[in-house]
């Protein structure tokens, strides 16, 4: 296990040096801020863009704080997920394709240590980026709209964090099978899109789906009791463990000779 610690330090150093620890949190902070701000300035924006007839009164009911934060979460569902997938797609393949992974593989390091080091490092970066940005959005929401209780906020963060565990495991697992960045991103997003679409079309049959956690993180903001919460959480945790095992199994089949 000391090997895993060394590898996590390596991942940390790498993402500091290539700037991932700077640009990803900033990108999320901007994404989170822009939602409450655009909603707050919506009347002015409409006025500038629309050129409404003289004397027309815009009367949009001010949304509640819960609604604004839900809007932030739905931004994450699309743009956030896209960023998370794109920022994770090359963490394994670039080492594998250029051959630098050999210096690790030739040493007594288990596939378990390698995969877990990647998973933990990415997850920590993602959780921190997500949490900071969501708290910023919460701060703005409280100033501009109505107060949302911290309990609701953290409930929502908790549920969303489990979804992130799954998301990172999925991308890592896919990237042990494929060798190009674009195909890894494509397949990962494809799988997520199918799950989301299925939940949309046949919600009754998809109550177990990990994508369900995204909508439940929204529900957690609006009500205290969330329906059917434990089923998707249990399934997501199990699927995450399965995906990590799959990645470890697959890594053991790797051929390092370039054939």
């Amino acid at each position: 296990m000391s090997g895993m610690q060394v590898l996590i330090q390596k991942e940390w150093l790498e993402s500091m040096r290539n700037g991932k620890w700077i640009w990803l949190p900033i990108a999320f902070a901007i994404l989170a801020m822009s939602q409450p701000l655009t909603m707050y300035y919506m009347p002015q924006l409409l006025e500038i863009a629309g050129g409404l007839p003289e004397g027309a009164v815009i009367d949009i009911p001010a949304p509640s704080g819960e609604e604004v934060l839900s809007g932030v979460l739905s931004q994450y569902t699309f743009l956030g997920t896209l960023l998370f997938v794109l920022a994770a797609m090359n963490v394994i393949v670039h080492e594998r394709n250029n051959g630098s992974i050999i210096f690790i593989s030739v040493r007594p390091v288990s596939a378990l240590s390698y995969i877990l080091s990647k998973w933990i490092s990415l997850l920590v970066l993602y959780l921190i980026s997500f949490m900071i940005s969501f708290v910023i959005a919460w701060y703005y929401t409280n100033i501009l709209f109505s107060m949302v209780s911290a309990a609701k906020l953290f409930g929502s963060i908790g549920i969303y964090s489990i979804w992130l565990c799954f998301l990172v495991a999925l991308v890592l697992s896919v990237s042990t099978f494929l060798k190009s960045n674009s195909s890894i991103a494509g397949v990962s997003i494809g799988i997520l899109a199918i799950l989301a679409l299925a939940s949309e079309l046949a919600p009754v049959y998809m109550k177990w789906s990990p994508t369900q956690l995204q909508s439940q993180a929204v529900q957690a903001l609006q009500q205290t009791i969330i329906s059917d919460l434990w089923l998707p959480i249990t399934v997501t945790v199990l699927v995450t463990i399965f995906l990590l095992c799959l990645a470890i199994w697959r890594m053991k089949q790797w051929d390092y000779s370039g054939h």
Binding site: K10, E14, N18, G99, S100, F103, V106, P108
Partner: peptide
């Protein structure tokens, strides 16, 4: 467990 290996045209971790 006690092997030292230098691959052909090694690609090291450039950023280290």
């Amino acid at each position: 467990g006690s092997i030292g290996f230098l691959p052909q045209q090694p690609k090291l971790f450039d950023w280290m």
